[in-house]
Design a protein around this nucleic acid. Sequence first.
RNA 1: GCGGUCGUAGCUCAAUUGGAUAGAGCAACAGGCUACGAACUUGUAGGCUGGGGGUUCGAGUCCCUCCGACCGCGCCA
Length: 551
Amino acid sequence: MEVDDALRVFADAVTGAVAARYPSEHGSVAFEAPRRPEFGDFSTNVALTLAKTARRAPQDLAIDLIDEAKQRAPELDGLFSTIEPVAGFINLRLAPAVWHRAIARILHEGERFGSKPSNGMRVSLEFGSANPTGPLVVVQGRSMSIGATLTNAMRFCGYDVFVEWIINDAGRQLDALGRSVYARYRQSFEPSYPFPEDGYPGDYLVPIAHRIRERDGDRWVGAGESEWLPYFSKSARDEIVADQQRTARRFGVEYDRWQSESELHEAGKVREGVDRLRELGLTYEQDGALFFRATRFADDKDRVLLRGDGRPTYFCMDVAYHYQKLRDSDRVVDILGPDHHGYIERLKGLSAALGFPGRLDVAIAQQVTLMRGDEQVGVSKRAGEIVTLDEILDEVGVDAAHFFFILPAVESPLQFDLKLAVEKENENPVYYVQYGHARIASVLRRALPDDVRAAESASLAPLVHSAELALARRLAEFPSVVAGVVEHLAPHRLARYARDVAADFHQFYTECKILTGDAETRRARIALSLASKTVLARALSLVGVSAPESM
RNA sequence: GCGGUCGUAGCUCAAUUGGAUAGAGCAACAGGCUACGAACUUGUAGGCUGGGGGUUCGAGUCCCUCCGACCGCGCCA
């Protein structure tokens, strides 16, 4: 009997008991895993929620419900080692055999454990997106870790996920970029050539300018701005985007599409969005501009779509882009940077306006403060002190970066200590988890091959130690953890879960000798170790961290 | 000024979406290897969950109100 089945037997019995005694109530039985182990594996608060309308003390009600449920389903005694009423809660502890069954299932399903077949739901996910005016920085790193983990978790759960990066290459910032590169180009001939005030001062533009000089020599020196600007803008944009793509790939994050904003304009997509809002009667003209009635959807002011001269605004582009995504998907998720708080309601309002209320979720990847020990680094963008994501990856590696980015909840600000992330000796959480995996691998290498083979189908009855059962329970929890990650857009739970699995294994390892003399016990413990390795490796892979065989 | 996110142990963060005595890691202190990896583990100490009020069987979580941090508030992108 599986864990879920055992719980369902209990839930059905209680539901039946409630229906018999209080016909007007429907008594939904929800389970949760109590924080304190002495409260059992699962508990339910039916008696508490029912107490008021039933006019009974919760504790008395709980006692009655248990009695009645046991009469209705006598098999409960075999499935649960304890069912007890405590302070109105009903606390349940599953019989070891049920946990053994869960381990057997993990061994049988292997890497598929916890995954679900395709559910036909399409999800559009956008994250990481940056202006094509410079190298990726730490915030995009966090956004990419979050997005990639959500993508992995959703695909694991059977969703058809389409991942997009939007390149903000329309508008005047690209002109500023072109002028900046041109200035660098001219400075290679005459160092005193002035740099534009609104330019991008970073050194990273210098090599781009030099490559143009190598290609074209001085042919742009005497040219007018209208001649060189498009060329310099596009050259820089292309090189920077290629660079961003290289960084993303290095970070292990794959995109299905890099969507250029200017291409959306050229393809006429922007018009489609505006036309749709017009059809819906949600626009009006004023001062020659076209407005969207955003105030009808909880925004604090109406928003301009088309300027007086007919040029679309940035928001207009978002209308078009989201209209397309909302039509094509069952769920749309945007992960935006910390400077977009004010955008959440506007986009959700837009989603509702277009006829898809509730289909769009917007998550804000909160701010990252880079630290090196007690010292804050990379604070001043103006002084050219930016720390790029590539530099971070150079310093701490891909695994540590992913793990640190993913560890706090999405909406929680993060202090990222670069020094801590490379510590190999003590307090680094990345190594703690990876060490757990390496340790399992090491034990399995030392085990006799015959034992490992036999473990796959061995009897698990010898697993009765509390550390063994706690580990088994943790492993069995994996599918619901992944499901929760997807439902609540909470990728950090996966990283924390991996840490918990490692901790439970370490404790099991400390308290139970795996390669022990008794063959039955030895094989059962090897089986538990194999299951642990499978689940830990899978959890790590979903957050983009490697699971080393040795360290 | 308006709006958003946040405020939890000395530090970094959790808390299964309203559940039980608010939990981990690090730092501090005291233990554990003649056993499969001590990059591990056991224990102690550490809290008025920013302050105050409210809702109810029950609040870190929901409502109101102050305080504080960050971020938005353009016919920029």
